[in-house]
Write a protein that binds this DNA or RNA. Structure first.
Lengths: 188, 188
DNA sequence: AGGGCCATGTCAGTGACTGTCATCAACCTA
DNA sequence: TAGGTTGATGACAGTCACTGACATGGCCCT
């Protein structure tokens, strides 16, 4: 067996979410998180750039997944359809469990600093998707608009998924929300 | 004459922008800003919630101006037109001078923390505009969409205004950008 | 066996931000 | 006009996020 318990990063994530839920983000110190994980404060900052980032480490994987999905869409797919299909395929990334996602989202929603971080993560996601679309030959305004629309739809669908106690399927909600967007814009 | 020099808040804003431009946001300490303004660090935090907010104190006025303009639009105006007219009228709020606006924007763009703050200010602006539209009887998705579209157009127009060395008129760029948005969406 | 690697620990430091009390000119009130 | 109040600022100590530098000691490779 190793010199240290394995999965230090995962233990820090768990401890942080637990404490943020228990006593709130601001009332939790990094030293407390590290102690609960059996590590030191310094080690926390070796794994996460700051106190907020511990809640957002999954956003890189989400971005990569979406970028790959858009890049791999058939050439014949319209930009908005490539983006829609990509988002519909992300349900698997929330397999860590609905409960954990909901607790995490509640913590973020309750704190302005964390909402700031969430916004810039979503902006970065949108920019990455727009870049990917441009690589497929989509011209400038259309690429950004399709990417922004995809992110907006995802936000709406995730909110519905979180608020509905019936535990609906996230991928299906994303599909439905895209259809609603099409209906709204078609009316113009 | 008073016990202290007048306009402490304004002197702090000036000193902060100067120093952020001279040596960068992160390399500037609040103590340095306060010293240049002839005040103490503690007084800085009595005027501004944090080190970033000193660059965003005007966003409240911008939001109020836009909300009032939308609320005062004729009942016959379509939501997107009420929003467009509101944004076209904000040019006056940048009368502090193009130069100062450009320097401020360059500082924000160069720093991730400041971009985060800018994003949440724009989100708050969008939410306030959507609320105002709903008070006018605009239903749910349309109100948010019109507000988001207005903010997006403003971002685009401001960027053009900043990048064009010909010092074009901001209000006119906003009008043109709205027209382009209409052209793009009409194509669907 | 030896030596380097690397995740973690230890410690000292900087700087953002807060709570608390003191100061003192301007203003108000009797 | 004397005295009390107000409000913006200063002074100071304290907490906590975050960083740099160096030490430690199992693990792996040769």
């Amino acid at each position: 067996m190793g010199r240290w318990e394995p999965n230090a990063r995962g233990r820090l994530s768990e401890a942080a979410l637990e404490l943020y839920v228990e006593r709130g983000y601001e009332q939790t110190t990094v030293a407390e998180i590290a102690m609960r994980a059996g590590l030191t404060e310094r080690t926390f900052f070796r794994h996460f750039a700051d106190k907020r980032e511990v809640l957002f480490s999954g956003s890189d994987a989400l971005r990569e997944h979406l970028v790959n999905a858009v890049a791999g869409a058939p050439d014949s797919a319209a930009p908005i359809d490539a983006v829609a299909a990509a988002f519909e395929s992300v349900g698997v990334l929330f397999q860590e469990g609905r409960e954990r996602s909901l607790r995490r989202q509640a913590v973020i929603t309750a704190n302005a600093e964390l909402r700031e971080r969430e916004l810039i993560k979503l902006a970065s996601l949108s920019a990455a998707l727009a870049d990917t679309l441009r690589l497929r030959g989509v011209p400038h305004p259309a690429a950004s608009l399709a990417a922004e629309a995809g992110v907006a739809v995802f936000k709406v669908a995730f909110e519905r998924w979180a608020d509905d106690p019936g535990e609906p399927d996230l991928s299906q909600l994303i599909r439905e929300s895209f259809d609603e967007l099409k209906a709204v814009t078609a009316g113009r």
